[in-house]
Design a protein around this nucleic acid. Structure first.
Lengths: 194, 194
DNA sequence: TATTAAAAATGAAGTAGTTTAAGAAATTCG
DNA sequence: CGAATTTCTTAAACTACTTCATTTTTAATA
């Protein structure tokens, strides 16, 4: 089951058999039931999570109680509260399973050790951080430039697999709109004026 | 002048004298005049830029011609179109000097070589990518959770030095609102109803 | 397979933020 | 310095999106 992680890492750095073994052993398989939390506010996030199978949602709860989706992750994606994980400080986010799922977890200390021991692993984590950064940058741009409807259309065309698997209210809060408004966009029946 | 870069790098990884020399030589000092561009759409971004002294703004131009500020950078910050730089593909952003400035540039190939040669440099770039990622994450959260006024207040209290140095229209477009609306917030004179 | 709970749809009324336009203030630079 | 350009302000009309309240649909679980 850790083969998928190894395969993933090898997209970015070539490994020897020993190294493949080594990194494989650092990840633990964990089964997560639907609605179960893997990250909660005020607890320091101890793991970086690779989704082997399933779907997750990261969100924060605003002062008014409304929740805002920060990220989704389905098969072959990573999910974590990065501010909590990389600085080892209390989380502000929740991460919850949207389906029964299987994840592969590496813990913080183990990851540090891997990076310290072997240049290649350092490279791997550098690359995924850079790609994450570039990805977030694109999202910020999209949110600044586009209207709610455009954001939805873009997201559907880029990530149809995610749109199919996540509830509408979660998608709406990810795209920065209410579930009612997204419902209206989807049904192309925009409020008419009085 | 490259001493500031070395000092910066040493916040994250300890270097030998040789290494200090080595990284110092990789950065070239460049003077940039106000209104001069250092990144332009359709050109592949060849450099990562450290602002030694001055102020820059990264922005994209939307379909309607409105511009949207993606980032600011003043003394001791980095700025670049990361999607262009890390994937070495054509930029979508402009990066322009808001003041006469001095930057220290490393070019893509040199950076790759540094990371390849020495684990410590790889670690350094991994750390700044991770921190950048965490930073962007906080910005996405702030944009989703807060109203225009709250975003402004938060930004002022977190980055007063930047607020003082950048023009209002640029700050407004960074915070995702119009310059007119920001003007109203600042002058606390909200539109009254008829 | 009925029952309850959760999610989505719909409409009407409200509001945060935009647009347009025009004048005032501040910077730039010849 | 003085003219030109850029930036900021103000106000009124407008609109994209929200809020609230209710109903319908779908999914979960006994």
């Amino acid at each position: 089951m850790t083969e998928k992680i190894i395969e993933y890492v090898e997209k970015f750095v070539k490994l020897t058999d020993d190294e493949r073994q080594q990194i494989g052993h650092c990840f633990k398989e964990v089964k997560i039931k639907k609605r179960q939390f893997i990250v909660q506010p005020n607890f320091t996030t101890k793991h970086r999570n690779y989704v082997y199978k399933g779907a997750f949602r990261a969100f924060v709860v605003g002062d008014g109680g409304q929740d805002h989706t920060i990220n989704f992750a389905i098969d072959d994606w990573w999910i974590t509260d990065y501010n909590s994980y990389i600085f080892q400080q209390p989380a502000t986010m929740f991460v919850v399973a949207l389906e029964d799922s299987v994840i592969l977890q590496i813990d913080y200390e183990t990851e540090q050790e891997l990076k310290r021991q072997n240049h290649k692993f350092e490279t791997f984590f550098r690359i995924i951080a850079e790609r994450g950064l570039a990805f977030q940058q694109r999202r910020i741009i999209s949110n600044l430039i586009h209207t709610a409807e455009e954001r939805y259309e873009n997201y559907v065309s880029k990530y149809p697999q995610i749109v199919q698997r996540v509830p509408q209210y979660a998608l709406a809060s990810f795209l920065g709109m209410t579930t009612e408004f997204l419902s209206r966009i989807r049904n192309k029946r925009v409020t008419k004026k009085s």
